Amino acid sequence: MAASRPRRTTGDPRRGVEAEAELPFAALHQLLYSLLPRSAGLDEGHRAVFDVVFGLRDCKAPSVMTLGIAVLDLLSLAAAEQPLLLLLDDGQWMDAPAPRCAGSWGAGSPAAP
């Protein structure tokens, strides 16, 4: 039996930027930018959510819960490939919608073992 190799963790450090504090979803874009190519693996509804919040589609902004679910699905896709760690520095410069969305990620989610 071959010895199992430890899985590498993807670290993705990001910084809050004062100049972007007034731009809706700027912090979320910073956090998820490197993962966005994986959004092709999401269903059309969740891809559309990202297109709207990142300005690629002109529609009404989704609810925090809808966005939170799309983000969780994207994070799940990325974490299925390898462990994932998101880090944010200078969080006080996050735009207003980002912390509300991030708060929904843990709401009702089982704790990781």
Rank of each mutant, 00 (worst) to 15 (best):
I69S: 14
T66F: 00
F54Q: 04
V53I: 15
L32C: 10
L32W: 05
H29A: 11
D51S: 12
D58T: 10
A40H: 03
G68Q: 05
T66V: 14
H29C: 03
K60D: 14
F54D: 04
M65T: 09
P37K: 14
L56D: 11
L35G: 11
V64C: 03
R57E: 14
H46F: 05
K60S: 11
V49W: 00
V64A: 09
H46V: 00
L31N: 05
K60F: 03
R47E: 09
T66I: 10
L67I: 13
V64P: 06
A48F: 02
F54V: 06
G68C: 06
V53W: 00
F50T: 11
L35C: 09
A61T: 15
L42G: 04
K60N: 09
P62K: 05
L35M: 13
C59K: 07
F54K: 03
T66Q: 08
F54R: 02
D58Y: 06
V52Y: 06
V49S: 01
S63H: 07
R38N: 08
S34W: 03
G41T: 06
L32T: 02
L35T: 12
R57M: 15
C59Q: 14
R38I: 02
P62H: 06
I69F: 12
L35I: 07
Y33Q: 10
S34Y: 09
V53F: 02
L42K: 08
L56F: 08
V53E: 03
A48L: 12
S39M: 10
G41P: 00
D43C: 00
S34Q: 10
V52G: 04
S63G: 13
L67V: 15
S39T: 11
L56Y: 09
E44V: 11
S39C: 12
L36H: 11
G45P: 01
L32S: 06
L32Q: 05
R47V: 07
C59L: 12
T66A: 14
L32F: 05
Q30I: 01
I69W: 06
F54S: 08
A40S: 10
P62A: 11
T66R: 08
V64L: 13
K60V: 15
A61F: 09
M65P: 00
G45T: 09
S39I: 04
A61S: 13
D58C: 02
E44N: 01
A40F: 02
H46T: 08
G41M: 04
L67N: 08
G55Y: 07
V49M: 00
A61P: 14
F54T: 09
D51W: 04
D51K: 08
V49E: 01
Y33W: 04
A61C: 07
C59H: 12
L36F: 04
F50N: 10
M65D: 13
V64S: 06
L36Q: 13
L67P: 02
C59W: 03
H29S: 12
H46R: 10
Q30K: 13
T66W: 00
R57L: 15
P37R: 13
V52T: 15
R47W: 02
D43E: 12
M65L: 06
V64Q: 10
G41K: 11
A48H: 12
D58E: 14
R38Y: 09
P37F: 08
Y33G: 05
M65Y: 02
L31T: 05
K60A: 14
R38S: 13
R57A: 15
S63E: 14
L67G: 09
V49K: 00
G55N: 06
V52F: 02
G68R: 03
